[in-house]
Amino acid sequence: MVSAAEAMTMASDNPDSKVKLQVRDVGIRYGSTTAISDINLEVMENEIFGIIGPANAGKTSFLKTINRMNDFDTSMSIDGEILFDGINIREVRNVYALRNRIGVVFPLPVGLPLTIYENVAFVPRLRGIRDRAELDVIVERCLTRAALWDEVKDRLDSLGSLLSGGQQQRLTIARALSQDPELLMLDEFSIAVDPVTTMRIEDVLKELKQEMTIILVTNLVQQARRLADRTAFFLDGQCVEIGATEDLFTGQVQDSRTTDYIEGRFG
């Protein structure tokens, strides 16, 4: 367990960085079962924040609360507060504008029943961009970044839902990027993507860090090691440890369970 004060000191190691997301005492319950409890952490602007942990640790539930997707699920109740740019997300007056600033990629790709082009142009169109040339630029840029452009550039008008699983996953990444999000949340994005493409996307994520903050939930601990600046280890709904990724992977941990998990001794 990491107290709020400790999280604070860790985050302030780098004096230049600014807190993008602050999570205080957050707990989530579904009816009477507790999904996560007492989560305290901070995500700094322009960092990649990794979250690792075995299944059922509450990682996905946690992501859902950040962009208030929990509003759809009445069985879910949430304690504590989450501050986005210092604003309590539960009190924002325009939740749609909040979600617009946060991009999410879910583990199972959800291609909207639109063409590939329209999938990526969806958000820009919602924002009122009508100029075709301008949309073309955005679509190409986002698809290229998601390592999908070369495969689909000749059939942008075919249905996005007809792509293979891995291609759909990259399409949803492109779609999330088309939001130009301030915060990008990736929930096990590489689950259906081949290793070579995964590496290409990982390279893009390292570049994207200059423009946005990224939260990376992953089952692949080595992926967290490759990408994340800091990593949190979730277990059974608790945040066991938060630290600089290199520290966690070189055994400088406060809780031995973290090393056990990373080295594959359980989970």
Binding site: N94, A97, R101
Partner: peptide, 20 residues
Amino acid sequence: MSQAARQRSGNLPDINQRNA
């Protein structure tokens, strides 16, 4: 870059501001 990108993506309201 990030500022330019955001301008290019059209108008985004403040999260505490209700728009049309």
